[in-house]
Write a protein that binds this DNA or RNA. Structure first.
Length: 915
RNA sequence: GGGCGGAUAGUUCAGCGGUAGAACACCUGCUUUACACGCAGGGGGUCGUAGGUUCGAACCCUGCUUCGCCCACCA
């Protein structure tokens, strides 16, 4: 005889706080999250998307992590050796900004401190706040192997970064050059294309006339003959630039002093004759040529473009093609420089206003127009991004991207949901080189040393002491650091010890799954794929699950300024981590944003209590002895719950395997609350009370034991804490539920047809309850008896006869009689209802309101007649009978005959009531 | 300009070929010995719009309206 140590003293209400903390530390102590290399077992691995060290856990992380934790816990229970590798990202620009902001409060800038001291301060900051987000992850219940926690700037990862940089450089896939890049004047660094966010803005279009000059000689600028005149004079020759002027439209008059050419389209009717001629740049004395270039859209603006290679990406390319000078007039902080003449020292905005004013007074500004155009902003600080000419490092991405595309095309990487594949292909197939240098101090310093003597650049994994070319000792390391995403791109293998050949790499790489949001597909996912293929010669992960965004209850993006941020930690305080996890899991639907509100979390908080109390009920009715289930002594409801339990076990596993945790979570919720609590628990009461004898009581206990023994592990990945606590209370075994194995569906507990039979019973119970409510019978009043009228030989009659005890208990009646409809009605005034082939009658004596009941019956008859008529109409269509599947037609026939019988019965009732 | 997704009960969403479901909200009634973090019952929807395919469409196809997102361009 098996016995168990049960704990029957559970509190009446579930309180998560102490329980969650207790179990988390026990799991840690027992080393249950530790990943072991076990050749006997299959490996399952996930590397966590490393959050910023300075960050705080937001609800997006919470969702992401819940998903990963569900997968990891499930796989552990399925017998895999699971690695969930945690860590944080140094987040170069973001972290540097945070620390700079803190310093600014003390009136210090990073330049005051100098590079070395500043970086030291950032490390101090990291030491103080870096563990915060890690602790928050632990509160959520993340089952990461914390022994393996990594940081993108730690020693091992830095080694990997260097190795990758050097190898790519030697392969010719990293190059350095002077190019136009996106530049944030506030952060004073280059940023990649992806770090620019565009938004539409009001701006002005300035129509400026450039005077045509005969030669390249430095003639003095002629004053415009039109200064001060009416500007809309159609006779003016500058309309279309045909006279002494050429008209150019620009949004950036402050860059005019950096102009080096005017470009027109080669086939432009209007301007062709001017190609090769020259103009004088307004506000300067420079003479520049009019050139032709395909880049010009003759339909846009005036059809001619001023070319400023140092301050516009398109102009930059035109400049290269035509071998034009690059004149920089704006410096790295967004201030006009020494080439800007009288505008030197002004901000861009000031210079724009001033130059426009000056152009106007020279009579060269023909008009200004309001336009909306999209303007790029720095993702980190919102400052308007400047195209800026500077020396930068780039990764040549095309060859890497080609392999990345191939890996998805031949199925080595699977995207879930599949739709994201398209987005990925679209980006990868049109990929541009990646600017990886940043003029920051916090990050991986580029391992390149420039020789002050010969200018040669030495790129090396180990700090060199001399120039590899001329052996001069006079070398200096590049001051730039790498884009933070460079190190992130290596995360799946750098965290496992690459470039060394470690056992972790051979066992856990490629990882099984990557879970992340669509916002970093390009930043991160695509680059991990490229780097993984290049350096591991294998994909970094088999499946990519892209989850949707979490928004507030009205579908708005959460943001601090809107004040609609849901803080997962506050939610955990308030409702418990389990409730939050269950909510996030249950709300998740593939390919759709998730709208979250605290009332939703409350719903799942209630679910925790429901599960808790259902367990309390079971425990109150179980003694320490484990009872066997006697399959020959089961009632319908026992078979029903056993069957449903097996179904749910099977279905949940399938759903989790296909990453549909939303449906899985909702299925478990419905099973526990609906099937188990609303029906089984209620129906098991008579047997547990002993009303059906000792054998029935024992078997019912066995069933309860089995159901909880099965459903708690199914729930565990979703709500680990409460299930662990209950597992212990039931005393199912001495071990942790976390270490239990995933329940298999057991065929001996699956019974054919019981779900349908049960629904017959449920319908009858609902009908009876309905009648009670209708007759306003007080719930506490036990009725003497109800009558169920059903043909004696039908299946329904059999089902009901076997479950009379349960029907009585659920409907609070003393006795239920089963009669044949042919029997004479002899119970006095009654209410009746139908469900299927079963007529339910409730003798209600004096309580019955006769006129009201007559009205109700008439209404019901009308409804049924309508339904019968519509079914009949379908049956009358030969096409329907011929082409619809036989079972559908049969169902329709059934509806008609049943409906008609029902109408007959109701009419009989009506007659007897009318008397 | 290219692409993607949504439009179903008051709200947020499931359903994705056989004539509508859940949660929350609302109404009625309940100290029913697991749970008021609960129980029972109820009201509420011509499934955005117009066509088409089909015996049959919320579901498939095509237009339209509308909301949101991504990419590219913007002198």
């Amino acid at each position: 005889m098996t016995t168990r140590k049960r704990n029957r003293n559970l509190d009446k209400n579930y309180s998560p706080d102490s329980i969650e903390q207790k179990w988390y530390s026990r799991w840690l102590e027992a080393g249950l999250f530790n990943a072991e290399i076990n050749p006997e077992a299959k490996a399952f691995s996930i590397v966590i998307p490393p959050p910023n060290v300075t960050g705080s856990l937001h609800v997006g992380h919470a969702f992401d992590h819940t998903f990963q934790d569900i997968m990891c816990r499930t796989k552990r229970m399925e017998g895999y050796s699971v690695l969930w590798l945690p860590g944080t990202d140094h987040a170069g620009i973001a972290t540097q900004n945070v620390v700079e902001k803190a310093l600014a409060k003390q009136g210090i800038s990073r330049y005051d401190l100098g590079r070395e001291e500043f970086v030291k301060r950032v490390w101090e900051w990291k030491a103080e706040y870096g563990s915060r987000i890690i602790n928050q992850m632990k509160r959520l219940g993340n089952s990461c192997d914390w022994r393996r926690e990594r940081f993108t700037l730690d020693e091992g990862l830095s080694k990997a970064v260097r190795a990758v940089f050097v190898r790519l450089y030697n392969k010719g896939l990293i190059y350095r050059g002077k190019y136009i890049v996106n530049w944030c004047p506030r952060c004073a660094t280059a940023i990649s294309d992806l770090e620019v966010e565009y938004s539409d803005q009001e701006g002005s279009f300035y129509y400026v006339q450039y005077p045509l000059v005969e030669t390249e000689a430095n003639d003095p600028t002629p004053a415009s003959p039109y200064a001060g005149e009416e500007k809309n004079d159609e006779s003016r020759p500058d309309k279309g630039g045909l006279g002494g002027y050429i008209l150019v439209a620009t949004t950036r008059p402050e860059t005019i002093i950096g102009d080096v050419a005017i470009a027109v389209h080669p086939r432009s009717e209007k301007y062709r004759h001017l190609i090769g001629k020259h103009v004088r740049v307004p506000l300067t004395d420079r003479i520049i040529p009019i050139i032709e270039d395909n880049m010009v859209d003759p339909e846009f603006g005036t059809g001619c473009v001023k070319i400023t290679p140092a301050h516009d990406p398109n102009d930059f390319l035109v400049g290269l093609n035509h071998n034009l000078e690059q004149i920089q007039v704006i410096d790295s902080r967004g201030i006009m420089n020494e080439n800007a003449g009288k505008y030197q020292g002004m901000t861009i905005e000031q210079a724009r206003k001033e130059s426009a004013k000056d152009l106007e007074s020279l009579g060269l500004l023909v008009k200004t127009e309001k336009i909306t155009h999209s303007v790029g902003h720095c993702q980190r600080c919102g400052t308007t991004v400047e195209p800026y000419l500077s020396e930068q490092w780039f990764v040549k991405t095309k060859p890497l991207a080609e392999r990345g595309v191939q890996a998805v095309k031949d199925g080595r990487i699977k995207w879930v949901p599949e739709q994201w594949e398209k987005t990925y292909f679209n980006w990868m197939e049109n990929i541009r080189d990646w600017c990886i240098s940043r003029q920051l101090w916090w990050g991986h310093r580029i391992p390149a040393w420039e020789c002050k003597d010969c200018g040669h650049i030495t790129v090396a994994e180990v700090d060199p002491t001399e120039c590899e070319h001329c052996h001069s000792k006079n070398i200096e390391q590049e001051s730039d650091v790498l884009d933070t995403w460079f190190s992130s791109a290596l995360w799946p293998f750098s965290t496992m010890g690459w470039p060394d050949k470690t056992p972790e790499l051979s066992y856990f790489y490629p990882t099984s799954l990557m879970v992340t949001g669509f916002d970093i597909i390009f930043f991160w996912v695509a680059r991990m794929i490229m780097m993984g293929l290049e350096f591991m010669d294998d994909v970094p992960f088999r499946d990519v699950y892209i989850h949707s965004l979490i928004r507030d209850e009205h579908g708005k993006k959460m943001s601090k300024t809107k004040g609609n941020v849901i803080d997962p930690l506050v939610m955990i305080e308030q409702y418990g981590a389990d409730a939050l996890r269950m909510t996030l899991a249950a709300l998740s639907v593939q390919g759709r944003d998730i709208l979250l509100s605290s009332t939703r979390i409350e719903t799942y908080r209630f679910f925790m209590n429901k599960l808790w109390n259902a367990s309390r009920f079971a425990l109150m009715n179980l003694d320490d002895e484990v009872r066997d289930i006697d399959v020959n002594n089961l009632h319908l409801h026992d078979k029903f719950i056993l069957t449903r339990t097996q179904e749910v076990a099977k279905r949940t596993r399938e759903l989790i395997d296909s990453y549909d945790i939303g449906t899985a979570a909702r299925g478990l919720y419905d099973f526990v609350w609906g099937d188990l609590c609303d029906w089984y628990v209620e129906m098991s009461k008579p047997a547990l009370r002993g009303d059906e004898g000792e054998a029935r009581k024992a078997t019912t206990q066995g069933v309860l034991e089995h159901v909880f023994r099965t459903v708690l592990p199914l729930l565990h990945p979703f709500i680990p804490f409460v299930t662990e606590e209950l597992w212990e209370a039931f005393g199912f075994n001495e071990d942790y539920i976390m270490r239990s194995s995933w329940p298999e569906a057991r065929s001996e507990y699956m019974f054919e047809g019981v779900i349908e039979e049960m629904s017959t019973l449920q319908d009858v119970v609902r009908s009876l309850r309905n009648l009670r409510a209708e007759a306003h019978v007080p719930p506490q009043q036990k009725l003497a008896h109800a009558v169920i009228r059903v043909a004696g030989e039908s299946r329904s009659a059999e089902i009901l006869r076997a479950s009379l005890n349960q029907v009585c208990s659920l409907c609070r009646v003393e006795d239920v009689a089963i009669e044949s409809p042919a029997d004479e009605w002899r119970h006095g005034p009654s209410l009746s209802g139908m469900s299927g082939d079963v007529e339910v009658r409730l003798p209600v004596g004096d309580v019955l309101d006769v006129p009201k009941e007559i009205a109700r019956l008439q209404g019901e008859i009308a409804n049924i007649e309508k339904a019968v008529a519509s079914s009949q109409a379908r049956l009358d269509k030969p096409s329907f009978v011929e082409r619809a599947p036989a079972e559908v037609v049969e169902k329709e026939r059934g509806k008609v005959t049943e409906g008609q019988a029902q109408i007959e019965r109701l009419k009989g009732n009506l007659e007897s009531l009318s008397k």
